[in-house]
């Protein structure tokens, strides 16, 4: 099993920490993982993205040109990464602020309106965990217990009281994600 993922959005959306929690969940499940952020000038007040790979075997390149799954959280990232999803792969996006919806017909497309849901839950900061929950509903590659363990490892201890709220957000993400179109 190998899953190559790009998570892309605005700086401040929690793109990098969502990737880190996913990667740590993989560690807890005894998988090989890599987490490679774009740390360049684009990150300083612009878009942020991170490539996460979870695999049962040794990982070769941490840098990729095509992905099994793209998790897209703003329009710039849609423009940049829609075409880099492998045929038959998966694209998950938050519709908030999207002016051009994905157009490909050879990939599975899901929508998780995490921005709206986070506002409804009065927990704007759990936005990225709602997205993660949506992703894990579609691709249950790590067990929930390992995600919680990954959360504990990623968050400094002073934030551990926030874990139940994040768990709730992950569960909610799984409930609100919906299919847009699936490859037959």
């Amino acid at each position: 099993m190998k899953e190559e993922i790009i998570i892309a959005g605005f700086g401040g959306q929690g793109v990098l920490s969502m990737g880190k929690i996913l990667a740590y969940s993989g560690v807890m499940q005894d998988m090989e993982v890599s987490w490679m952020p774009a740390y360049g000038p684009e990150m300083r007040g612009g878009t942020a993205n991170v490539t996460v790979i979870l695999s049962e075997d040794r990982i070769s390149s941490p840098i990729l040109h095509e992905y099994d799954t793209a998790i897209i959280l703003n329009q710039q990232s849609m423009d940049k990464f829609e075409n880099d999803v492998k045929p038959g792969g998966t694209l998950i996006y938050d519709g908030n602020g999207i002016t051009r919806h994905p157009e490909r017909t050879d990939i599975n497309i899901y929508r998780v309106d995490a921005t709206d849901e986070a506002a409804r839950m009065h927990a704007v900061k759990t936005f990225n965990m709602i997205v993660l929950g949506g992703y894990l509903e579609v691709k249950p590659i790590v067990k929930m217990e390992n995600v919680v363990a990954g959360l504990k490892k990623s968050l400094p201890e002073r934030h551990h009281h926030l874990i139940p709220m994040n768990e709730k957000a992950i569960t909610r993400g799984g409930e609100v994600i919906k299919e847009v179109s699936l490859v037959k």
């Binding site: 880190k20 990667a23 560690v27 090989e32 993982v33 890599s34 987490w35 490679m36 952020p37 740390y39 990982i59 941490p62 840098i63």
Partner: peptide
């Protein structure tokens, strides 16, 4: 280099 310095692995 910046790749190995900035990436996270086990």
């Amino acid at each position: 280099d910046g790749v190995i310095g900035q990436m996270m692995e086990k």
